[in-house]
């Protein structure tokens, strides 16, 4: 039975999940939890938070599998990606609120511990900092096109924007990152002046 389920695609497995088939659900979790964890981490930049997001998203799906409507959503992964992204952005906003309240010491301490344990170099730490201050939409566009390797059209559909708007978001995201990295001394000034930013 399990072997038979293993060969099914995600959409067919969701049909089984709707019948409260735990095995089908387990296969979906094993197939995608790491990928969605990475997607979430790129937004929340915190291991524990990213794991919580993936866990909550899957449990929500298990509790209410009728949320998935096969006719409306072409691919399970694109649909579920939206859920994970929305939940990640909620956490990301929460973090920004913590920053606004000036109560960020604990969060930064955890982030610093993470950096140490991962032995990130200065450039990576600077990049993480630059990504943290990017506006939500720009960050999402960058993740979809750069890391998730989605086509512009697919990414634009997920974000509910036009392809042109998505390209503009990507351009501004990269520009923002370059400017931030320049301020932190990781990109040379001359090249920015020469107009090579875009």
């Amino acid at each position: 039975m399990t072997d038979k389920l293993q060969n099914l695609d995600d959409e067919s497995l969701m049909g089984h999940v709707k019948q409260h088939d735990h095995q089908a659900f387990s296969i979906l979790v094993e197939r995608h939890s790491e990928k969605f964890y990475a997607s979430s981490y790129r937004i929340v930049t915190n291991k524990q938070e990213a794991e919580d997001v993936v866990q909550d998203a899957f449990l929500k799906l298990w509790d209410r599998p009728e949320m998935w409507k096969a006719g409306h959503s072409a691919k399970f992964t694109s649909w579920f990606y939206k859920i994970v992204m929305n939940m990640s952005l909620d956490r990301y906003r929460k973090f920004k609120n913590i920053q606004a309240l000036g109560d960020k010491e604990q969060y930064l301490k955890t982030a610093a511990e993470q950096h140490n344990s991962l032995q990130k170099d200065d450039e990576q730490v600077a990049l993480d900092q630059a990504l943290k201050v990017l506006p939500e939409k720009q960050l999402q566009a960058l993740n979809l096109c750069f890391y998730e390797e989605m086509s512009r059209k697919e990414a634009a559909t997920i974000m509910n924007v036009s392809v042109k708007a998505l390209e503009s978001l990507l351009m501004r995201a990269k520009e923002g990152l370059r400017n931030d990295l320049y301020r932190q001394g990781f990109i040379e000034e001359e090249k920015i002046k020469k107009g090579q930013i875009i």
Partner: peptide, 9 residues
């Protein structure tokens, strides 16, 4: 992580 989610479900 996957085991934890499955166990909770």
């Amino acid at each position: 992580l996957a085991n934890r989610i499955n166990a909770m479900a």
